[in-house]
């Protein structure tokens, strides 16, 4: 495992990547991306057991699915920093002919991406299917997924929650990014999700709540805990409370930065709050 100071540097650098990618493309989704930086760093650097070389089938390695594909900036940043593809390719985000599509795609074989996402509510079913394939293959590794909280309003998620719970699918770890925000406002105001913990428990899931989803060490710990709970007849869900726009003061605690890019001044201000640690792309 990498040491925590290096991982903290990665968190800051990934924030810079996100801001600079979205600024350069003049479009994209910085808010949710910034809120999930600690999760992605913890996941890729401490939790996932993956091979050096990416393969679509992911046999005998952990697989990860991003359901809320609009937070592609953080996904791409961490994949690149982890070595799935060259860091300089982050320059091409949302450009024509780029492998870094606005929402993740497999059409141009971007290493690290196994299924397209963007149209919400579909990733959990895919992660369930991959977990089933692992069972059939006697593959002891885990299927992971990240879901946004807003996308829980899509009914397909609940079909998949029901299926995984009813079928004791215990090689599946799902994290829900609870930032409480969606495009039209707070999830509470748009369509309240109610007591998600109680709902998932009623669907026969193990639920772990982590209130400090932007505390890197806490996220590392909760992912570790989740792994210890696998192979025990129940799927596992981490309810990860995060702050949208985390790390950039004027982007935090608001849905305003869900899907817009900072201008030049805003970028400078945001970057000044996150000094370069590794090297900018």
């Amino acid at each position: 495992m990498s040491d925590i100071s290096f991982l903290s540097q990665l968190v800051t650098q990934s924030r810079r990547d996100i801001l600079r990618m979205v600024h350069k493309a003049k479009s994209g989704h910085p808010g949710g991306s910034l809120g999930c930086v600690e999760f992605f760093i913890a996941l890729y650097y401490t939790a996932l057991e993956i091979d050096d070389k990416f393969s679509l089938d992911g046999i005998n390695e952990d697989v990860f699915f991003l359901s809320n594909g609009h937070i592609s900036p953080v996904f791409y940043s961490v994949l690149a920093r982890k070595g799935f593809f060259p860091v300089y390719e982050l320059n091409t985000f949302r450009n024509i002919n780029s492998r870094l599509q606005g929402h993740p795609s497999v059409q141009k074989s971007l290493p690290g991406v196994r299924v397209a996402s963007g149209s919400l509510g579909q990733g959990l079913s895919v992660a369930v299917g991959a977990a089933l394939a692992k069972k059939l293959n006697n593959d002891s590794k885990i299927s992971y997924a990240l879901l946004g909280d807003g996308e829980l309003q899509e009914g397909q998620n609940w079909e998949a929650f029901m299926y995984a719970g009813s079928n004791n699918l215990d090689n599946l770890i799902v994290t829900i990014d609870l930032n409480g925000q969606q495009i039209d406002g707070s999830t509470k105001d748009v369509l309240s999700l109610g007591d998600i913990e109680a709902k998932l428990k009623a669907f026969d899931w193990e639920v772990i709540v982590e209130k400090e989803g932007n505390n890197l060490e806490k996220v590392i710990s909760v992912l570790k805990l989740a792994k210890t709970m696998t192979k025990n007849k129940k799927p596992i869900c981490i309810l990860l409370h995060t702050i949208m726009g985390n790390g950039v003061d004027f982007m935090m605690h608001t849905h305003d930065w869900h899907g817009i890019a900072p201008n030049d001044e805003q970028l400078d201000l945001a970057l000044s709050q996150n000094p370069e640690t590794l090297k900018d792309f």
């Binding site: 679509l56 089938d57 992911g58 046999i59 697989v63 699915f65 196994r114 299924v115 579909q122 990733g123 959990l124 079913s125 895919v126 992660a127 369930v128 299917g129 991959a130 977990a131 089933l132 394939a133 692992k134 059939l136 293959n137 593959d139 299927s143 397909q156 998949a160 299926y163």
Partner: peptide, 11 residues
């Protein structure tokens, strides 16, 4: 969705 996921792993 599950069908799509099952292909990941060669099914």
């Amino acid at each position: 969705g599950i069908a799509a996921g099952l292909t990941i792993g060669g099914k």
